[in-house]
């Protein structure tokens, strides 16, 4: 395959970036999108050019590192996958592909396609946990049976990989799907109920402080989420928030 790539290049967080065009040839349809970028980088290095920086690690769709906005879509044209699972067979010979970083006010660019998602970490610091110490004396794991449906829903919410596709996709740069997923996971489990009010108030507050926008129920985040996290989680978070605010 022969392709034209238009890629966002930005030296560092202070400098201004721009789209740069690259021609690339001999791309196999079995390559992953990141392997195609590897090929381009190998060439750039030998041509004394600066290789393109992008975040990636596990390359099997679970670590949540990769974060490319390809042809206007988070993680590219395919559904329910991350960029590293996107294969070149989804493109046609001669295509022009636009590659940008995930863009949001709360996700500043570090270099090229690499962004700083530490805002997500800070939201988790504000309440994304259950306060239990490691003691070896916690009660037996089976002492509280959990309704299978709740357990499964908690699991589905917990599959979030924290990649930020929801934020990048949302016209408001809202992080509600991410935050909602974490709050749902804990609010569905008996272990998480004790501090549910405090958690939702703190996490939502931190989310606002980080500069993420609000939800206007467009549902684009659910469509682009590589793990298919459901909008129900946002609804559940809003219910929890309302409950907690009333209690307060």
């Amino acid at each position: 395959m022969k392709l034209t790539l238009k890629i966002w290049r930005q030296k560092n967080s202070e400098s201004k970036g721009q789209m740069v065009s690259y021609e690339i040839d001999n791309i196999s349809p079995d390559m992953s999108f990141l392997e195609m970028l590897d090929v381009l980088n190998a060439r750039l290095i030998l041509e004394d050019d600066d290789p393109i920086s992008f975040d990636h690690d596990c390359r099997e769709g679970i670590c949540g590192s990769c974060s490319l906005f390809i042809n206007g879509q988070a993680h590219g044209p395919d559904r329910r996958i991350t960029t590293c699972q996107l294969h070149m067979r989804k493109f046609k010979d001669g295509d022009t592909i636009y590659v940008e970083p995930f863009r949001a006010k709360a996700f500043p660019v570090i270099k090229d396609l690499v962004i700083d998602r530490s805002a997500f970490d800070r939201i988790q610091h504000s309440g994304g946990y259950i306060s239990v110490n490691t003691s070896g004396n916690t009660q037996d794991a089976n002492s509280i049976p959990i309704n299978k449906e709740d357990a499964d829903n908690a699991f589905d919410a917990a599959t979030c990989i924290g990649c930020g596709a929801c934020v990048a996709t949302c016209k408001n740069s809202s992080a509600m799907l991410f935050v909602g997923a974490k709050i749902s996971q804990y609010s569905l489990l008996p272990q998480g109920k004790t501090e549910a009010s405090r958690r939702v108030l703190n996490m939502v507050n931190q989310m606002d402080l980080e500069g993420f926008g609000n939800c206007s129920n467009t549902g684009a985040c659910e469509v682009e989420c590589p793990k298919g996290i459901s909008l129900d989680n946002i609804a559940r978070m809003n219910r929890e928030l309302l409950k907690a605010s009333l209690k307060k």
């Binding site: 259950i130 959990i146 299978k148 272990q191």
Partner: peptide
């Protein structure tokens, strides 16, 4: 010896392990 404690600890932390219809792990 400590393996059983790990499961207890993780469940207490909210790790959503697979369960059967009776609600047990």
């Amino acid at each position: 010896e400590v393996s059983a404690n790990i499961i207890d600890q993780c469940v207490a932390q909210g790790v959503p392990f697979a369960r059967d219809y009776g609600g047990l792990l």
